[in-house]
Design a protein around this nucleic acid. Structure first.
Lengths: 331, 331
DNA sequence: CTGTTAGCGCTTTCAT
DNA sequence: ATGAAAGCGCTAACAG
């Protein structure tokens, strides 16, 4: 390992280690001649400051911890990109990791981030209320939640208006010709709950009951649901509308429908939620509720930096408006 | 911030801080009674060890730095997933960041990782030979390169056999009916060079010159190239085969072709490279050269852990075999 | 402007 | 089994 320390270069330069330390932290406090000599030596000797030591001694680490729910999900990746973008312009590094939707993992990750003294944390929580969030508050570290609306009014967050999004979907679906409407939901996440609430608020219940399938979480789950839809709901003969609260799953469903040559949208209309990038590129471009995902990351990052700068500023609470995007998967 | 230190809990427990430290690092060396008391106190007082201090004092950080070229690219995300998977089972954390294909950023990121004393580094380098790699060697930190074949024989890597992949594509394309073949390449990355070499090795040159477009790097670039292909190469009337050395770009090209109602594969056949997940889900499933991307991450991570355990073991050098996948974008 | 000194929180001999 | 003390590399008063 790199064993060069400020002490080594101090000796080489014939100065004290304080001086060397100063050229690192307050260069202007050092005589330009010695400063240059020291800098030169640093370069020559391949000196790399030990961030652990700096951190221990009190310097902010300029590291921001980011915890998302899934890595292989464009939704979260786009958030991370937004975050990364902002952080970089401000010379912060991002430390990205995934909870994989498991609370305990989330807790451990956050704990580890605190333990490694990141200057702030961005979290897309599994639940809006959890030990993780209590930990964050208790630790007194600046943090902003993403894709989640916490009950605690003191907590900063950036989320999308999922109730509104559900309503948009309902209005659109009300306007469609159909014999049945089927709702398909996945992870029991707050955002999903809100979407469903908004949907039920506005959907036209007079057109018969709305069937619901729960726990359909992944692309594969969606794919596997299709045979059930066929046998239980006869979607191949009754003109059906599927509202699937997650694009990723919707893609899986469509994939299987296409494989079985069931015409979309003539026989089955599909409406998703999220507007991930894939939704416009997939086999049959997907009608969906769009969230400006990247903005979510960007705003969250900016607010976090703000929070770090002025810790007692009021909590930042952002609710981004969704938009409805009609594509060819529905009619 | 969390101000509870071992000293605090030592006082509370009426023992010395050494003892507390021991229950952290060598629990078995402590009387089980005191140990339990201390552990209980830690829980009660919400104690979180300071990883910086631990690291400074010599304990490995159990952090692995991972640097990829792009975040919003399933190719690299899948690598990261593979890595994450392995690391987690071994109780290591991953610190993920993106160089965005810029060498300087890559260098800075690696430097910062070393500076924060990660135990090892996984890097998908921009170039097979660079200051970054020299830095890594010099620092003496265990590392494995991904998606790259370094010239230096002492360096461990996991990559795919891109020459072979190019050859596979050429053989397939030789078998296709066509009036012209067009090669489209992007980032001047080693892997791309190898693909092209393999391709030229095997492609049938007797069927006329092969035109080449360079510097087509992103989905958008691919999209924008289509009008040029139309005007310069008249692909709408001459039956054409496009070999695009990157699926992401191929998707962009296809998107625009579809928008212009140019029939794929009847009029234009498209062959990509990478077999990212999208390639099987996109509007017209893409014929492509498949790399077992996730394996690459998994193997790299495993070899890194191995390297960390026995630092003087021989360099690990893996070349994964590609596979050719025919889908509906070509005929 | 520069050197001296005392920590930051934890691990680790070395005694006891 | 436990405590005392030194030290990891760096920063931050405090003197000069």
């Amino acid at each position: 390992m790199n064993k060069v320390t400020i002490m080594d270069i101090a000796k080489a330069a014939g100065v004290s280690k304080s001086t060397v330390s100063r050229v690192l932290s307050r260069p202007d406090m050092v005589n330009s001649k010695t400063r240059n000599r020291v800098l030169e030596l640093m370069k020559q000797m391949d000196y790399i400051p030990n961030q652990l030591a700096q951190g221990l001694a009190g310097t902010p680490t300029r590291n921001i911890g980011v915890v998302i729910d899934e890595l292989s999900n464009f939704f979260f990746i786009e958030i991370a990109e937004g975050v990364d973008w902002v952080l970089n312009t401000q010379n912060y590094s991002m430390q990205l990791s995934s909870s994989r939707w498991v609370e305990e993992r989330e807790f451990l990750l956050v704990r580890s981030l605190i333990s490694s003294r990141v200057d702030g944390i961005l979290l897309a929580p599994v639940l809006p209320e959890s030990p993780t969030i209590r930990l964050l508050k208790h630790a007194g570290i600046p943090f902003v939640l993403m894709n989640c609306i916490p009950e605690d009014e003191e907590i900063s967050y950036v989320s999308c208006d999922n109730v509104k999004g559900g309503e948009l979907a309902a209005h659109y679906i009300n306007s469609l010709e159909k014999e049945q409407t089927i709702l398909i939901t996945g992870f029991e996440h707050q955002s999903m709950g809100d979407r469903v609430d908004g949907f039920y608020n506005c959907v036209d219940h007079s057109k018969g009951d709305i069937k619901r399938y729960r726990g359909v979480k992944t692309f594969e789950d969606g794919y596997d649901l299709v045979p059930i839809l066929l046998s239980r709901d006869e979607i191949e003969r009754k003109k059906s509308v599927l509202f699937i609260t997650n694009d990723n799953v919707a893609l899986g469903v469509m994939e299987h429908l296409v494989a079985l040559s069931i015409p979309i949208p003539e026989q089955v209309s599909v409406v998703g939620y999220d507007n991930i990038r894939l939704s416009s590129l997939c086999r049959i471009p997907l009608t969906t509720v769009s969230q400006s995902i990247r903005d979510m990351g960007r705003i969250a990052a900016m607010e976090l930096l703000d929070l770090m700068a002025s810790p007692d500023s009021k909590p930042k609470r952002h609710l981004l408006a969704p938009e409805f995007v009609v594509r060819s998967s529905s009619v």
